[in-house]
Write a protein that binds this DNA or RNA. Structure first.
Lengths: 195, 195, 195, 195
DNA sequence: TATGAATGAGAGTTCATTCAT
DNA sequence: TATGAATGAACTCTCATTCAT
């Protein structure tokens, strides 16, 4: 969509896909560059024609993940009906983090961001924007009386994301009861916001 | 407390402490055994007199973390006053996961458990017991009318833990507003459970 | 000067210049072809349109350096006044090897020639001619009585070159005292040849 | 001889010997650590139990070479008879640099020192002391009238070393005429110093 | 129990060169 | 001529673990 996207070499995307596959299967640190090039079907050296190094691939992935959050940020910006907006967001975001690649990559990026500033910067930026947007939605709902007043809206927003993401992660172990669990979490959150 | 604990060589605990220090600082996979023995001030070979290998140290730590959950499980078993019991648990558990070593080690163990059965087994066992105990507390509260009925109490229990642990993790970045944030989360959860 | 020179593609000379810059800065073996094409501002593949490979560039440079020795060989061929001829040669050659690119490239080529026959051949040929010309000048001087008899004129000739080139190399570290040092060396050599 | 020497693990010396063999044969930058461990008959990893890395081996060798210069410095310190002292030094030093390992290692270290401060520091230190000692010997000879006054004794000293070392290097190509050539150089130098 | 030398597989990265465009 | 993606061997170095002392 962006002008930058058009100039990306298709091989670069293949590498990213291969890396995602490996990271999901083995984890970032357990994945070697040889695993990635093997999965991508390219030679070892060629990887370095498209990425500066292994970390650059994760940064690239973190950027993509961060960009995907933008859609949710946009979704939350419609504050005419905070209750409906939030309900929709929770449903959509729960579905998003229920996808294994989002759930697992998310935790992989999150843990890496704890100690890797490059990752923290690129991914944390958009995550903070998402938290702010969500907090703003809550605040609007409080003002219009559909939500109870919250001590610290951003913290609650953060908590909502944690709860949804945690649910997505746990659903990996027991994917069968997925829908039920998602409903339980959603209901709890929405109920918790009621005045 | 157990008979096993009393026979533990003091050197073994020194190693564990050193390992914890390293894991907190660099992460499990980024920590080498040389880092650990360096931190512990012992020789490389001697580590293997006390642990079968690097993973065994993490298993040992996961066991300790798992045992610490037992205290909370016991705390939750008093179901005379589910509301008070839950309130106390949330306060205590929030304080527990606010300690950096618990927050960081927790996520380290959790992510490792995703792919490492040995870790999943030893840590997940007690975590599941904690979830069950928490769900039971919620169920009791529902029965006695102090909590609203929940679609899936274990999922809600899991969510509560996720929310508290997530808050502990985020407090590492901004430790100043710790108490306020903890209150916000606690209030939200307790409010969400209200009928 | 040669017909061959006129047909050289300007790009080829740009590559050589870039390579010289890199070799001076990092040394031959420490310089990668990517360094060279980066310095030259051309693409990686294009280098191979002008040179067979990295070594061919050094051979080309060695040839140029060898050709520059021809001027000195010609200068030494005038044996009417060996004393004046030698004095002039020493002054000129000292100035020549005092240029960093000549001093550094010289030692780079010399050390490479130790193990690389291609380099040894192309550079050593003219250097040997220079030594012979210098030895002949000394011999003439001995015959005409202006120089003392030498046990082995070629060895002395070689030694004179070593002394001058060594001085050029050392002057890289302390360029300030350049002229004084060159005079000291020149005087010593000329004095050593006196009968 | 020094207390430090006694604590050196014999394997470390084996590695150094193997490295010297490789450096002589292929040059420092052309030698891989696998070449060294192959020559030494040890495993790859074990090299790093004794040396921090490849460069540390060269630094160690440069230190040894530097220490060997100490003997010559001591020899030059006897200034009762500068002429005899210098004659002896030239003979001994010429023999020293006529050994291939000294000649080749010397140029290897010298060229590396041009761009590697660690090497320059450890080797250049003692070489400077040697130059100073040699210059002092020349100065004493000048005072006592056995040598002609020199414009810049240290430069002349440096030149003498260059000439001897250069001769050692050239003798690698034509070792047969070794003695004759050494005499030629020695005679020239001594003659050049005469008043 | 304690030591640290020894192992060799594996890590991430760079290398000179080729080739289709 | 010019490009840069593609190749895979080679690079230095680290890894967890073993073992003789």
């Amino acid at each position: 969509m962006s002008s930058e996207t058009q100039s990306i070499h298709p091989r670069k995307l293949e590498i990213v896909e291969a890396a995602v596959t490996c990271f999901l299967e083995k984890g970032y640190h357990q994945t070697g560059v040889r695993d990635i090039v093997g999965q991508a079907g390219i030679s070892l050296g060629n990887l370095y024609n498209h990425f500066k190094g292994k970390e650059a691939i994760l940064v690239f992935i973190a950027e993509i993940e961060g960009q995907e959050l933008s859609d949710f940020i946009g979704q939350l910006s419609d504050n005419d009906d905070p209750c409906a907006t939030l309900g929709l967001f929770i449903t959509d975001y729960a579905a998003y983090v229920a996808l294994p690649e989002n759930a697992l990559l998310g935790v992989e990026i999150l843990t890496e961001a704890l100690r890797n500033p490059a990752i923290a910067e690129v991914f944390g930026r958009n995550r903070n924007r998402l938290i702010i947007a969500l907090a703003e939605c809550i605040t609007q709902g409080t003002k219009s009386g559909v939500f109870a007043p919250q001590i610290d809206p951003p913290v609650v927003a953060c908590m909502i994301l944690d709860a949804l993401e945690g649910q997505g992660l746990h659903s990996l172990s027991s994917p069968s009861e997925d829908n039920l669990a998602r409903n339980a979490v959603s209901s709890f959150i929405l109920n918790g916001l009621k005045p």
